[in-house]
């Protein structure tokens, strides 16, 4: 097992290399001179040259890349073009807002998804099952930003139950979390259902029944434990989708998180900030997936050995 974990950690290296390289190139592939962007349109040629030198923009690209990675490893993402503040300082307060949003939404989607999936599978083809699966299909097919707008229109504007924008108070959390968590809940519900149905037809479930085990216990102990194993992977992938989905949700609800910062920075061509945000979100996603993969393998070891 330790060797497996070490091997997985080694596999991380090319991925992180590729991710940093792509993010680094983002700045260089973009039309326009960064020095010009910093100095402003009216800056003199000499000012621009001075900035180019101070930023090392005249160094060969590989040197610039190595410098970039070294800086990033020390959480130094450079300075924002817009505010001339360290990018890290810009990001820090927003980072936790986005993490909160993503984590709450993930918890919500796991909670709802699991319950719905189990309830569906236990009574396959019942009215309950069909209803839940239709709702799940809708949940998967809705653009989350549209769902957010509709929830806002109904619950904030018409009914006045929740504040329409912002983040922080309990009321402000509700709608964004539902908005972001719905698609994930739908995906997890579908996955849980099919995994449960798969497990319920296994021989060892028949064994449990033949032993005289109560049907409830057959489902919730013997079947569920096995059925959850493949669901773990889906949860990991969903977390990534959710993390990226904050871009849209934060825009809808005017939440000052990382997602909104990305959009604002792209609009303002503030590339150091864009780079940092994309890098941070991707690295979190890669690490979460690594953890999920390892736990999946741990959980699955017993079955795979057959």
């Amino acid at each position: 097992m330790t060797t497996y974990i070490i091997r997985r950690l080694f596999q991380l290296i090319p991925v992180l290399f590729g991710v940093t390289l792509l993010v680094f190139l983002l700045m260089h592939l973009t039309p326009g001179n960064p020095a010009q962007l910093i100095a402003g349109e009216t800056a003199s040629q000499s000012t621009i040259e001075r900035i180019e030198v101070s930023m090392g923009l005249n160094d060969p690209l590989p040197v610039q890349y190595v410098n970039f990675v070294t800086d990033v490893a020390q959480l130094d993402f450079g300075y924002s073009y817009r505010n001339n503040t360290p990018v890290f300082e810009e990001i820090k307060p927003r980072f936790w807002i986005t993490m909160e949003l993503a984590i709450y939404s993930t918890i919500l989607s796991i909670f709802i998804g699991l319950i719905a999936g189990i309830v569906s599978a236990v009574r396959q083809y019942s009215v309950r099952d069909v209803t839940i699966m239709i709702i799940a299909l809708f949940g998967m097919s809705m653009p989350n930003f549209w769902l957010g707008l509709m929830l806002m229109n109904w619950f904030s504007i018409q009914l006045g139950w929740f504040p329409p924008t912002g983040w922080g108070s309990a009321g402000q959390v509700v709608l964004p979390v539902i908005t972001l968590g719905t698609a994930g809940a739908a995906v997890i519900a579908r996955m849980t259902r099919s995994s449960m149905l798969d497990v319920i037809s296994q021989d060892y479930i028949r064994t449990a029944r033949a032993k005289g085990v109560h049907e409830q216990i057959v489902i919730y102990r013997h079947a569920l434990k096995n059925a959850l194993i493949p669901v773990v992977t889906v949860v990991g992938l969903q977390f990534g989708t959710l993390l990226a989905g904050t871009v849209l949700t934060e825009t809808v609800f005017s939440i000052n998180g990382l997602g909104r910062l990305v959009i604002d920075s792209i609009m303002a061509r503030d590339f150091p900030v864009v780079q940092a945000c994309i890098l941070i979100i991707s690295v979190i996603f890669v690490v979460v997936n690594l953890i999920v993969d390892i736990s999946y393998t741990l959980l699955n070891k017993r079955i795979d050995m057959d």
């Binding site: 296994q202 064994t207 033949a210 005289g212 109560h214 049907e215 434990k225 096995n226 057959d306």
Partner: peptide, 27 residues
């Protein structure tokens, strides 16, 4: 069903063809 459960595995037991898959892998 409740009375039947008391019989299964207690008065009448069953063993199956596939020993590889008839035991729960997670217990």
């Amino acid at each position: 069903e409740k009375e039947m459960r008391k019989i299964r595995g207690n008065q009448i037991s069953m063993i199956f063809q596939e020993p590889m898959t008839s035991l729960n892998p997670t217990y």
